[in-house]
Nucleic acid binder design. Structure first.
Lengths: 257, 257
DNA sequence: TATCATTTGTTCGTATGTATC
DNA sequence: CGATACATACGAACAAATGAT
């Protein structure tokens, strides 16, 4: 592959480097040639080389460190170990895999209201009162961070111990709701987007690492939403696993959005 | 917010624009001021303005079109409608929500071998023979594209109609395996990463849109893996939903990675 | 500790090409 | 066709981080 075609120079340089990495000429963790060297080798200006490397950065192919150089990122087919989304129940005790993840900061409890997104999810109108609790927890196995939020409608907390323990962990909330006579089921949705700058700093995310957003809704047996949880985690740092059961009925059919 | 601090100019400009979008001064779909205008307004050079806008592009905040300008992207809290991962069974007939998604291209069938990733997932050694089938399917509701791959070990296809129908759809494969006497269960893992350039073009992904990778493994009742599927979809274009059932035993416990 | 060479980061100026309307 | 807007490319200079001397 040579630099002559009638295509933008920086794209050609990026393509050459991308191919070289794919061919194993530059192994993960190793250093690419310096910008000055690449500039000489391909007879292009340094700004052009920088533009090529900028493209590789946004693809997540390289990490660049000021004063050192451009490192090939380990682009593993499969990322960190899988975190199970399972909920385990024994009698009236619930546990989830994230239960024993330490909190990097004390939980933040606050009052808020339903908005255009959370309202429909909880089956409520807009501007209904909610108790929120934000947590920053850390996977002890990998060090990966997760932002976890619980939103409890007043109707759910009312006349239960939840009124006085807004900072309860999810598995504790499940137990409290079960003790209050509810028969719980859960549904999750997951999607990915690029993190906002403050999410990147809070989660210590490198460049070009997407955010996975998992929304879990806890339902009563009647289908009434009781609780909304949202988890945000760096995509490369975690995969999520769950079981699929073939449904012959429509019990868990689309409750939509 | 003004441009004076002792921080890189392009970061200040990016922060101002980011804040303006967050404050609703520039609504989704609307046009940012042109580079020349921003350059004048904040008394910085046009390359500096371009650097600021480049930052907003990699964050997915704006879409830039040559000759037109920089559009604020609709950064909805919740993206496209949820695609259910449910498998529905009636007698020996299976169906999944993607069954009736049209194929943008004819499926590609090929032979390959297990590698360091697929081997362990299928409980096989390295370099065991597989039948692969790649599909490019389209969500009729949204137009979003998905790359879908099935990997069938020879041991699974052997002595079933699968030998002669390598391009069978997943739900057809489930039916064939069930007819062959298997009692099927499924597990999925999901993670996100930035797409490779060819994945971006194949899936028509805009800039700064991550890729969601869903891996589904079909197991026999004995826990033997029979089939590996991988789906790749643009993150913003789809959310995935599934039911969580509280397990009191360890039936669906961690089968790892 | 201080200095220096190397490497990337930031910023400007300038010119030309290409897409849109 | 022309005005506007973004894309590409080069050159130049200085700042900041890094690691070795």
């Amino acid at each position: 592959m040579e630099i002559t075609r009638n295509e933008p120079l920086y794209k050609q340089v990026a393509a050459v480097l991308r191919q070289a990495v794919a061919d194993g000429e530059y192994l993960p963790g190793s250093l690419l040639p310096s910008e000055a060297q690449l500039s000489q080798r391909y007879r292009v200006s340094r700004p052009t080389v920088r533009q090529a490397i900028a493209a590789l950065r946004t693809e997540g192919l390289v990490d660049v460190v000021n004063g050192k150089g451009s490192f090939v990122r380990a682009r593993s087919g499969r990322p960190a170990p899988t975190v199970e989304r399972t909920i385990t129940r024994t009698d009236n005790h619930f546990s989830t895999p994230t239960d024993d993840w330490p909190e990097a900061e004390p939980p933040t409890v606050y009052r808020t209201q339903t908005d255009a997104v959370t309202g429909p999810l909880l089956g409520l109108e807009s501007e209904e009162a909610l108790i929120g609790c934000d947590r920053l927890i850390t996977d002890p196995a990998t060090g990966a961070r997760t932002l976890h939020q619980t939103l409890v409608p007043f109707a759910t907390a009312d006349s239960t111990p939840l009124e006085n323990t807004p900072e309860a962990r999810p598995s504790e909330i499940y137990a409290i709701l079960t003790a209050a006579g509810h028969d719980l089921t859960w549904r999750e949705t997951v999607y990915a987007r690029m993190p906002l700058p403050d999410e990147r700093t809070a989660l210590h995310l490198p460049e070009a690492v997407p955010l996975m957003v998992i929304t879990r809704i806890t339902y009563d047996a009647s289908g009434q939403p009781l609780l909304l949880e949202e988890s945000r985690t760096g995509g490369i740092h975690a995969a999520f696993g769950y079981a699929i059961t073939a449904a012959s009925d429509k019990r868990h059919a689309v409750r939509s959005r």
